[in-house]
Design a binder for these strands. Structure first.
Lengths: 182, 182
DNA sequence: CGCTTTAAAATACGATCGTATTGCAAAACC
DNA sequence: GGTTTTGCAATACGATCGTATTTTAAAGCG
């Protein structure tokens, strides 16, 4: 057999290409052929690592989520020991907001997938929302406010992605909310 | 020539079918043929009223927006004369949230279109955001809080659509925010 | 009434889709 | 070192896509 290959790495390579296509031309432009071309590989190779297109999509969605998770934990651990809850929360929220170019691309992909999975029967979506909610609640004076905080961040992200809000507007609104809650 | 026909009505008939397809199977399932079948008409007729698929999509998006607008003004005018700002604002927000089945379908369509237009070059999106923002600001003690209120509502709507939040959770978070602001 | 215009259907066309199938070369294994 | 397994490419297949073209029939108008 040919040289042993890192399956996860190959899959990620393809998923990255998928996300580039999705961010640039939308999820509807994501086809096996386009993704293969964007990755610089053959259609057959994509098929080798993903039996179906849906399998590929689900994997790519997982990659986006993992990346977000990684960004968040990195930003949080960069805060040093024993940061104030408010600082931690703000860091978390700002990290997830699509403010720079890379996280903007991720956000576009996540948005496209959101619309994609909203209709799917089930099984695809995981519940990182619940755990995020719990974490936010642990940082707030009033844990019940977590639902609103998460929703506010999501909404700000949407409007930033859509171009209706600037990054500054989003940050201002976020800080105003934190002022209210702390 | 055949009987004169109400063009707008025919277009709306087709757009309604489009939205039914999009709400049930996602925007990717929206094809000229599917829409025609869902509307119970021929492909040729769809082509007669929309020269391209994109033209059809843009029209459908406009219909969704108009319907939302209509719902809001109806709900507001049902409040009677001189309602309190807080009541007006709450009515506005609750009306837009996808809490019942019909507005949920509209919300799904709007979400799908959001992902669709986020990538499109330009021209498609209108700026009803700005006018909504102004209206909300006029109802708030602190007009600057409008940005956050609108984003919160959008985020709540997303999570309700995605099934992560229940309608009750969304309403509770909304009222909590109004308590903070008034 | 006959001509013309137009709503609507039917069909055709080439491109692209997801996926199945087949072929082949390279390396791991006995 | 031959055999077998596996990574990957190539290609084929039928379905579906958006759209162009052609036909049919009905009704407005002189």
């Amino acid at each position: 057999m040919p040289k042993q290959v890192d399956v996860r790495e190959r899959r990620t390579l393809i998923a990255d290409a998928l996300m580039r296509v999705a961010a640039a031309q939308g999820l509807e432009a994501v086809s096996v052929r386009h993704v293969a071309a964007a990755a610089g590989v053959s259609v057959g190779m994509v098929q080798h690592y993903f039996r179906t297109k849906d399998e590929m999509m689900v994997f790519a969605l997982d990659v986006v989520r993992d990346r977000n998770q990684t960004r968040v934990t990195a930003a949080l651990s960069a805060l040093g020991p024993d940061p104030q809850p408010r600082v931690m929360l703000r860091t978390l929220l700002v990290t997830i907001l699509p403010l720079d170019e890379q996280s903007r691309a991720d956000g576009l992909v996540a948005l496209a997938f959101l619309a994609y999975t909203a209709v799917r029967p089930a099984g695809v979506k995981s519940d990182d929302t619940a755990q995020m909610l719990g974490f936010i609640a642990s940082l707030l004076p009033d844990p019940d406010a977590a639902v609103g905080v998460l929703a506010l961040m999501e909404g700000l992200g949407m409007y930033v992605l859509g171009g209706q809000y600037t990054a500054e507007q989003a940050l201002t609104a976020l800080d105003a909310q934190l002022d209210l809650l702390f």
